[in-house]
Nucleic acid binder design. Structure first.
Lengths: 210, 210
DNA sequence: GTGTTTACAAACATACACGTATGTATCTAA
DNA sequence: TTAGATACATACGTGTATGTTTGTAAACAC
């Protein structure tokens, strides 16, 4: 095969990632073959081994393409809490839900991560950094919630870290359920789903109520 | 190998399922080998192929061992809504969360299902029946929520099917998050988590608020 | 007590996915 | 203009999982 220009090479790299999305989505990550991906992109495994180290490498590159922009979004939100932290957080969550529903790439990759990826001790490295990322996210959410608490939007007795945990679970859980279902327009219901959850936080009982 | 009594054979079947739990949990379903499972149980693949048709068969048998009792629990709850449907539902959810936290088998299998199983077009049959099971569960939840609505526990404008969707997502999401985290005692916080969510339902805004 | 079936173990045949090594045509820089 | 680097394609060796077949000793029926 002929050598190609830098731009063309970058293009094929993107095409390979696109193909990885399709193949991982169709067959699951473990069952997907590097040959499957290469053929889907109209190339051979040689191209893959040139651009990526192995299957794990192409997988993380594929995930980064959609998660990095989202993380940036959260960072920006954290940098400027604003006057209505809880309301901001609610519309942010709604925006994420809408994004999943509207952007095909985000949709596919979320489906892959939530349904078509097996975490095991074998891929411990990937798990470790993912766990760290999730912990950071939870802490950021907790920080924002504490800001909301200081403004009186949440009762003082609420454990904001636990609330961040619940919020994170709720978001992921809603996405997961909707991906399975697809019956209604998620973007349309997103605001209600988030508002309802925050109403729960506003009226949360004290911890020892259990 | 010698022939064994019926009881002994049933015992080895259980041992194989126990081994499948451990191996699936450790390596993920796709990466787990039938030989891995057999060796873990102190046998050979011959035993597996005697008791089960293939890997999918042993996987579903393993899942059924923990999901069937839980489904029975929900059925009983549906048969008798009681005087306080919402409160009952809350304590039921808390019970499920506590079960995940306290019963090792439930814990392992949930982890396998949520994190170590790749759904793909290849296992479409399994997916189809799982989707049907989930739909039934959602409908049952919606029915119970409507009963709560008629007793005035939930505002009349709430779409109970959407609420059931959110509840289901919340439960699964909380389990998922906790499995990743394991920082606190889930059984202790379960009641608060459920109560907080139901407080959101009680104070849910009208749908067109978005 | 004998024959048959059961409950596995052991051996085999097939297939497939991975990594790597090697080939090669083009681009680029000096 | 040419030497080397680049961007892939092709080919090969190896490991490994799967399904099946065959072997076999004990349980059970009669």
């Amino acid at each position: 095969m002929a050598r190609r220009t830098k731009e063309q090479a970058a293009e094929t790299r993107e095409q390979l990632l696109d193909a990885a999305e399709r193949v991982f989505h169709a067959k699951g990550v473990a069952r997907a073959t590097l040959d499957d991906i290469a053929r889907d992109a109209g190339m051979t495994r040689g191209a893959i081994y040139w651009h990526f180290k192995n299957k794990t490498d192409i997988f993380t590159a594929m995930c980064d393409r959609v998660t990095l922009p989202m993380q940036a979004m959260l960072d920006a939100q954290l940098a400027d809490p604003g006057e209505d932290p809880l309301g901001q957080l609610a519309s942010d969550g709604a925006r994420i839900l809408s994004l999943v529903a509207s952007d095909p790439r985000t949709l596919r990759v979320f489906e892959i991560i939530l349904f078509k990826t097996e975490l095991s001790e074998v891929v411990a490295e990937v798990m470790a950094e993912e766990a760290e990322r999730a912990a950071t996210c939870r802490n950021q959410l907790a920080t924002i919630l504490r800001a909301a608490q200081q403004k009186g939007q949440i009762p003082a007795h609420v454990d904001c870290y636990l609330a961040a945990f619940a919020l994170n679970g709720y978001l992921i859980g809603c996405i997961r359920e909707w991906l399975e279902l697809r019956e209604f327009d998620l973007a349309q219901r997103a605001e209600w789903l988030m508002q309802t959850f925050y109403m729960g936080l506003r009226h949360a009982p004290p911890l020892d109520a259990a």
